[in-house]
Amino acid sequence: MKISSSIPKHILPVIVFSQFAGTSLWFAGNAVVPDLIEELNLLEMFVGFITMAVQSGFIIGTLVFAVLSVADRFSPVKVFLVCSVLGALANVLTIYSSNFTEVMLARLFTGFFLAGIYPVGMKIASDWHKEGLGKALGYLVGALVLGTAFPHFLKYLGGDMPWRFVITGTSALSVIGGLMLFYSVADGPYRVRRSSFKPSMFFTLFKNSNFRSAAFGYFGHMWELYTFWAFIPTLLAFYVLSNQGFIINIPLWSSIIIGVGGISCAIGGYISLKKGSKFVSKISLFISGLCSVLIPFLFHAPVWVFLGLLLIWGIFVIPDSPQFSTLVAQSTDSSYIATGLTIVNSIGFAITIVSIQLVNLMWAHFQNPLVFLVIFIGPLCGLFAISRYKVS
Rank of each mutant, 00 (worst) to 15 (best):
54 V>F: 14
220 G>W: 00
334 S>F: 06
32 V>P: 04
17 F>P: 08
220 G>R: 04
69 S>C: 11
288 S>C: 14
8 P>R: 08
328 V>R: 05
190 Y>C: 05
177 G>S: 11
44 E>P: 11
373 L>C: 09
275 K>Q: 09
235 L>T: 06
94 T>V: 13
215 A>R: 01
364 A>W: 09
59 I>R: 04
2 K>Q: 07
249 N>M: 06
341 L>C: 07
28 A>C: 12
375 I>K: 02
328 V>C: 12
271 I>D: 01
331 S>H: 15
220 G>Q: 01
218 Y>K: 01
40 L>Q: 14
156 Y>N: 06
385 A>V: 04
328 V>I: 15
68 L>W: 14
96 Y>G: 06
177 G>C: 07
155 K>R: 15
332 T>V: 14
89 L>Y: 04
188 G>H: 02
263 I>W: 08
87 G>K: 06
76 P>C: 04
310 L>A: 08
151 P>M: 12
180 M>A: 15
16 V>Y: 04
273 L>G: 00
362 M>P: 14
46 F>W: 07
307 L>K: 06
327 L>T: 01
162 P>A: 02
248 I>P: 04
317 V>D: 10
199 P>F: 07
74 F>S: 07
241 L>W: 03
13 P>Q: 05
149 A>N: 06
99 N>Q: 06
75 S>F: 00
368 N>V: 12
259 G>I: 04
323 Q>S: 15
200 S>H: 10
78 K>G: 05
227 T>G: 13
245 G>T: 04
133 L>H: 03
38 E>C: 12
11 I>P: 09
38 E>G: 14
178 G>Y: 13
19 Q>C: 11
256 I>M: 04
359 V>D: 10
246 F>S: 07
289 G>H: 11
247 I>G: 03
2 K>N: 12
184 S>H: 13
1 M>L: 05
18 S>K: 05
392 S>A: 13
135 K>M: 09
1 M>R: 09
371 V>L: 01
387 S>E: 12
342 T>R: 10
37 I>M: 09
257 I>C: 05
191 R>P: 02
307 L>Q: 02
147 G>D: 09
225 L>V: 00
29 G>N: 10
379 P>L: 08
55 Q>L: 14
234 T>Q: 10
122 M>F: 13
336 Y>F: 14
5 S>W: 05
311 L>K: 10
290 L>R: 07
370 L>Q: 09
32 V>M: 08
70 V>E: 00
19 Q>I: 13
269 G>Y: 03
131 E>S: 14
153 F>V: 03
374 V>A: 15
22 G>W: 05
183 Y>M: 09
1 M>D: 09
228 F>H: 10
107 R>D: 01
57 G>L: 03
138 G>E: 09
118 Y>C: 05
341 L>D: 06
259 G>N: 00
116 G>Y: 01
132 G>K: 08
385 A>S: 15
148 T>M: 06
326 T>S: 15
181 L>I: 08
127 D>Q: 12
141 V>N: 11
91 N>M: 04
310 L>Q: 06
302 P>L: 07
131 E>W: 00
274 K>N: 12
